[in-house]
Amino acid sequence: MSPHRKLKPDSLNPDTPSSPQEKLKFLVFSLAVLAAPWPLAGGYLTNVLIFVGINSMLALGLNLLLGYAGQISLGQAAFFGLGAYGSGVLTTRFAMNPWLAMAVVAVSVAAFAFAVGFPVLRLKGHYLAMATLGVGVIAHIAFNETVDLTGGPSGLSGIPNLAVGSFQFDSDLKNYYLVWGFALVAVLLSLNLVDSRVGRALRAIHDSEVAARVMGVNARLLKVQVFALSALLSALAGSLYCHVMTFISPTSFSFHVSIELLTMVVIGGLGSVYGSILGALLLTLLPEMLRAFQDFDIVFYGLLLISMTIYLPGGLVRGIPALFRRLWPVRRSHA
């Protein structure tokens, strides 16, 4: 290896909004999101895209934790469910204003995650996975068993749509813009976060926790903070979900959902904001398109998780550009 080998600058973090390109990228992405229902003319696909938006927020929350800070959580569905049931119960049983309920629930869920986070995130690797899974399963059982509050296995119905004044979010198109409004803000804030002091510290913890701590990074606190942030995003997604659906039942918040989210993040790209969206898009659209082969999706997820981890650990968001570069190599200018 020659010591004079020229190394060319990498663009490691594909999501650095400080550069003009990245601002343009976000702008193009936002416009695409805003324009998407146009060609679909408010049809069935618009409805599907609402769920892409909700799943994007969930995947983003998990990716901040898993892809950036390197801490796994198999209990994300618990926070999603707490958000949904929190909003659902407060608005139906206690007639609380939905927006107020959403805020109250989001803050409480984040606070809960913050408190639980201290003992949970002291664990590492496999133990962390099992503990978060445990939290998820307990929450799922609680949704089923607290029948008086949640309606139990038969679900909770009659949840109102969100409204601003007399304007009701009662159609697919309106809900699309509602959900994606939230999702776009979440994307922008996440992009900001990952390219900042806090984001760098999280990535440092991922690469080497010991070195990060020796650099003065309070790893324990930061991990818990990002855990709470991901819970906050999941709870918001849950609140939106319950108002869009107006009906919720425990199956939407089972262990299987946590695994689906994990699959989205791994397929899209660990440690990439846009990767989370790509993963959410693919994994929400595919089962819709594969309706004919209904039960295949779980087999498919399994195969995807294994093969992506072995052959494409960077996810599609990095794999596709790499593939293009291989197919059409651009001549590099030697500066």
């Binding site: 600058p9 990498d10 490691l12 973090n13 002091r197 760098r200 510290a201 990535r203 440092a204 991922h206 690469d207 080497s208 010991v210 070195a211 990060a212 020796v214 650099m215 003065g216 990074v217 440690g271």
Partner: peptide
């Protein structure tokens, strides 16, 4: 050598400035 291998050289040093921000 415990570098943050997936971050840029500059970002590594910026982590070093974590305590001063």
């Amino acid at each position: 050598i415990e570098l943050f291998g997936k971050m840029t050289v500059l970002e590594n040093v910026m982590v070093g400035l974590h305590t001063q921000t």
